[in-house]
């Protein structure tokens, strides 16, 4: 019964969170904290922090975290499946439509409008992360003292290496993480 409830809750989260990332957060809070009382608000805030700090989409992270706390590993599996089920069905359908009709002129037109939009959306997300990296949680500030020098240094070196040698980005990310940790231990 609890497994069914978990499935249904996360099914709804997966179904109605359009736009990804933070768009899912209020939905998760509504289901998990307000409706079912599976987590307290403090636990939920911790969950968001963890989800931000660990890899993976926030909805999948939440499904695993809540599922385990409520019903162990089976709970986590059921909640995760519930969460991705709507995506699987709808996206497969859209994929089929896309590959069937992508040669149509109107579809070509729509896609030609969407491509620069996606570049803009990636740029916007990138700039938000850049601001978080340089100034921290409080956001952009004109006060030079709030700038995190280690992060600025890491960012500058990383972008230089990426542009110059085009290495696998994952090594750049891991490298800057290790150097960040090492600097913290030394200072």
């Amino acid at each position: 019964m609890i497994l069914l409830k978990l499935f249904w809750s996360f099914f709804q989260i997966g179904m109605f969170s359009i736009g990804g990332g933070m768009a899912a957060m209020p939905l998760i809070q509504n289901q998990v904290v307000n409706l079912h009382h599976w987590l307290t608000l403090t636990e939920f805030t911790d969950l968001i922090t963890i989800a931000e700090m660990t890899p993976g989409p926030i909805a999948i992270n939440s499904a695993t975290f809540v599922g385990i706390r409520i019903a162990g590993i089976p709970g986590a599996i059921v909640a995760t499946i519930g969460c991705i089920f709507p995506s699987c069905v709808i996206v497969s359908l859209l994929a089929w439509i896309y590959f069937k009709f992508k040669e149509l002129t109107v579809v070509q037109g729509i896609l030609s409008g969407l491509r620069p939009t996606i570049v803009a959306l990636i740029a916007s997300a990138g700039l938000s992360i850049f601001i978080l990296v340089v100034w921290g949680e409080d956001g952009f500030s004109t006060n030079p003292l709030t700038i995190n020098l280690v992060s600025v240094l890491l960012f500058t070196v990383a972008i230089f290496i990426l542009r110059k040698w085009k290495p696998n980005p994952i090594y750049v990310m891991l490298g800057s993480g290790i150097i960040g940790g090492a600097i913290d231990l030394l200072i």
Binding site: M53, V119, I122, A123, A125, G126, I129, F130, L132, V133, N148, V150, S151, V152, L154, F155, A158, I159, L162, R163, P169, V172, M173, L174, G175, S176, G177, I178, I179, G180, G181, I183, D184, L185
Partner: peptide
Amino acid sequence: TVVNAVLKGMQAGVAAVIADVV
């Protein structure tokens, strides 16, 4: 705090990767 510093460093790397692709 070390875990936090590693994650913070990785965020700087992520920002650079996105900037590169953009």
